[in-house]
Design a protein around this nucleic acid. Structure first.
Lengths: 338, 338
DNA sequence: CAGGCGGCTGTTAGCGCTAGCATTAGCAGA
DNA sequence: TCTGCTAATGCTAGCGCTAACAGCCGCCTG
């Protein structure tokens, strides 16, 4: 039983499989894609030949010929902050079994970078695009609008989508948190967040937050921004700075759970009465942080569901543009007094 | 809240740009790829036409014609554990400016899933592949070996690579940690880790660890595995379980920093004397965790450098297969007594 | 003034695959 | 016998782009 040794110099094509199995290229193509009628014996012969040769189809040629690409572009700002991996999980699980495959691009919160990632992705003619946020460069919006494929903007719905949007209202989320804090009787409230000119969602949360404060006749008594470094550590440092600088602060509102956790650890280490003397809250519902000495008040951002819904919209390719608003739930945890 | 999706009009091709600018398709192609000699006025005219039309090149056709694809497949087990995002950062930053682009595939530590992700990626004929780990299905190894592109297996070097490998010796890392622990005088040592039959690197670390213990006439006094859930919380729970079950444990070795941090928080909350009465160590050097009340002993896994080196190997496409061993440094932190 | 050369642009021939017929064999019904 | 059908397979013509080469022009060189 001898078989020809595959020549590593020559990359295999349908023709090789067709010659090895004695049928036309077209029939091989049909077998490998499970399309059309092929008799059982022929199918078996072709599959065996393909397996023996180690043939891997060339999707580039296939896509060009069929004008069909089973890829969905996913454009997100970062992979390292716990929120987007969960969105990805939702996307992947929903796409599984539809024949579509996600392809990720990361922008690092840079609009120009986003534009070029989008351009690059569109040049592969994907079946759809999922993009975080509603804010893009004009050129990016134009490209997406013209692409002729479903575009789903995720995370945020406070704005005008290109066609579909799935997310929460961050403005409302900020407002809700402020209302809960005020209702709990806190009055001297400080904000601690990331210095990210392009994190529009964090910005909108803060806007909503301040709006609700204003309605109650309050305003932030202090604010502090950071960038870079370990979030946990930064949360600790910023908290120390704010508490030292401004007296009688009774609430710390953080733009994300990670720095909130750092702040919480600091307050506990200082022996401060949480949530009696001082309350804390973050944003995002990071499961990772369960296991801290106390549970930080937070609001989950429906990340998994956002991913699933966005993927479903692409997979079902609806003609009508739609906006899906999800509603985060406030989790008071142990750091807002009841 | 419904708007029609803009009609997928005629998708633009080179021909459209060529007609709009009054030159041949070839010249347009040259301009858009910055290749060959094109006079300045022609170039300007073409660029303007392309911009005005909003032309996005079709890389599928381009790749088929040129037999060149500027993609590098990256296959990793997970995005949600802090280690691979950092590898990705290294890869992206090194690939930036080479014209190559990473494309990520996630396997969830499932060998069959890995095989299909690899198959799928190879079918796009990438310029190279970067794959976590040295353990793959036979079929996956065969495909990769035949693909005729550089393959870099990362993270681990304890095994036989397909052609290139960049990583650390996890067996040695486990051994080193054990030696440090023994040298510090700890004797009743327990292991706490993930229940992951396919996390070969964690397995190798444990093997190396036990090997070094054995050489000192010691063996683990207890071990505990978990799967799923919040790592921090699991670390806390497992630690409680182990310390309750087995008496006089004086060291806890964790398979990763996250559960180690949970254990550390638990020990501190219990008022245990760390590192006097009990020591702890993890693995990975997660910057995220700086900011905990005490710094967990750990070993960084050179993730950034691994990513950079792997990307450099692909970009420079060397003929010779090479294995690059990196050497992690032990960070004693505050949880091993000096 | 032939010959050549460099700068610029166009022409030709695919890349490997698949849509959309066309073709064949085999067989049933009239 | 012939037609009409179905199931299985093959053929042809691209998909949109680029490699490779073939012009063309003006300008120099000897």
């Amino acid at each position: 039983m001898t078989r020809p040794i595959p020549d590593p110099r020559h990359t295999l094509t349908l023709r090789d499989v067709s010659e090895a199995s004695g049928v036309s290229e077209m029939t091989v193509s049909r077998v490998l894609r499970n399309r059309g009628d092929v008799s059982a014996p022929t199918r078996a012969r072709v599959l065996e030949a393909a397996r023996a040769l180690g043939y891997v189809p060339n999707k580039i040629a296939g896509a060009l010929a069929s004008q069909r690409v089973n890829l969905v572009g996913v454009v997100i700002p970062s992979l390292s902050n716990m929120v987007f991996p969960e969105v990805m999980t939702g996307i992947s699980s929903t796409l599984d079994g539809t024949g579509l495959q996600p392809v990720v691009g990361v922008t690092n919160y840079l609009p120009d970078r986003e534009e070029s990632v989008i351009y690059e992705m569109l040049s592969w003619r994907p079946s759809g695009m999922i993009i975080a946020g509603l804010e893009h460069t004009d050129a990016a919006r134009a490209m997406l609008g013209r692409a002729g494929i479903p575009i789903v903007e995720i995370m945020d719905i406070d704005g005008t989508p290109i066609n579909h949007a799935v997310g929460i209202s961050h403005r409302r989320a900020g407002r809700q948190m402020a209302e809960a804090i005020i209702a709990a009787g806190y009055r001297r409230i400080a904000f601690l967040g990331t210095q990210m000119p392009n994190d529009f969602r964090a910005k909108k949360r803060l806007e909503g937050f301040e709006e609700a404060l204003a309605k109650a006749g309050l305003s932030l008594v202090d604010r502090e921004y950071y960038s870079g470094g370990s979030a946990l550590l930064k949360g600790r440092e910023m908290t120390a700075a704010v508490l030292t600088r401004t007296r009688d602060i009774d609430f710390l509102y953080y733009s994300n759970d990670m720095i909130g956790a750092g702040g919480l650890l600091y307050c506990l280490a200082q022996g401060l009465d949480v949530p009696g003397r001082i309350g804390l809250a973050g944003f995002n519902g990071v499961e990772l942080l369960d296991g801290l000495p106390a549970k930080l008040a937070t609001m989950d951002a429906c990340r998994l569901e956002i991913g699933q819904t966005a993927a479903r919209i692409i997979a079902e390719a609806p003609g009508q543009a739609q906006v899906v608003e999800l509603f985060p739930t406030l989790q008071a945890g142990d750091t807002i007094r009841p």
